[in-house]
Design a protein around this nucleic acid. Structure first.
Lengths: 192, 192
DNA sequence: CCCAACACTTAATCTACCTTAAGAAATCAG
DNA sequence: CTGATTTCTTAAGGTAGATTAAGTGTTGGG
């Protein structure tokens, strides 16, 4: 296992000594996730957070009508879990699965807390991660409140071109909170 | 100044020694914010985070049509700022003002970073704050994606009864992403 | 290589929510 | 206390986006 990628990601925010790096590596579990495999199921407790090394994952919420609402995508260098469940220990509201064959490094909550004790800077790293996640979610709320679907779609394309290329329009529509049919009609309009 | 309240809030998550308490207190600035006064204006940089001791504040985004979209309310024991601006140093997207005469304790970014150095547990406190904020925003996104306005309104009433009592329906409508007229019609329906 | 499943499109119809407008009720500044 | 401003309501008409349904790609497992 050589999770150089994950250490690079961490070192963008904090500096870690060689022994600390080795400790971090030793707590990460490499996991291959074939397309369609479920990493976390609604109702179970999220005991791990996952760093995406390869591929694409999604987290979605299934509503009463049985419709899937995509809450987030994750690819290269993103961390993903059901943070509500991970934080509180309550059952997960989200399902996480792979949209492509993927590779993740998983870190258990126990080991994360152990890291917080052993590598104090890791608490800082995680604080920055959570702060960025908060800012991202809030800016999505602003967009949902203030912009029509067409503009949200355009912003999605410019903000996440990596996703736009690899993810089906059905998934994008679900992320934007519209139907695939309506997204299709938006695309037709903007191509014309 | 006796910000016992704020220290209680902090000690719900971390423990701090007496000298640390005194340090924290010394970095907080008490600020009275009369109703309608603006604490942070769009376009300026958010250099402080505010702990609400009394009253009610709101943060809103003004869209191209000039409409105000309320991103968050804050009262007793909530922390509020434009976290995007506070984090990055870029101009704020939000305006923060008081809906009632309020009292806040403000902590500058410089002093917060100083605290992170001097009181390592404060990094943990802030990590928890950001983690909770992330979870809250994500659950709001889930609601916006998966529920019609009527149900979002009902959930708002049960989740934030303190707000529901003190905030006008116009503000609540803006938070829910609907017009006051439509909210009024929902209320009529559910009373009948 | 084939067929079954799924993704994408088109179009007609429908509905949740918006806009506009105007009156009634509440709040507020002087 | 009073006029002015703002909030809340009601109602008519309008639109963004949903639903349904059917047809046309694409994809992928056997």
């Amino acid at each position: 296992m050589q999770p150089a990628q994950i250490l690079d990601n961490i070192q963008k925010h904090i500096s870690v000594s060689q022994p600390e790096k080795e400790l971090i590596e030793s707590l990460l579990v490499l996991q291959r996730v074939p397309k369609k495999e479920v990493l976390l199921e609604t109702g179970k407790v999220a005991t791990e957070i996952h760093f995406v090394s390869e591929g694409v994952l999604r987290a979605y919420f299934t509503d009463r009508e049985g419709d899937q609402n995509i809450v987030m995508f994750a690819m290269n260098d993103w961390w993903i879990t059901d943070m509500y469940s991970f934080s509180t220990g309550n059952p997960a509201q989200l399902t996480i699965d792979a949209l492509e064959d993927s590779v993740v490094y998983s870190l258990s909550k126990t080991n994360l807390e152990f890291l917080f004790l052993k590598v104090p800077a890791f608490e800082r790293f995680f604080r920055i991660l959570m702060q960025n996640a908060y800012v991202r979610e809030q800016s999505r709320i602003i967009q949902n409140l203030s912009m029509p679907a067409e503009e949200r779609y355009r912003q999605f394309l410019t903000k996440y071109p990596q996703f736009a290329e690899r993810i089906t329009q059905k998934q994008i529509a679900s992320y934007l909170g519209i139907t695939p049919e309506f997204l299709s009609s938006l695309r037709k309009k903007s191509n014309a």
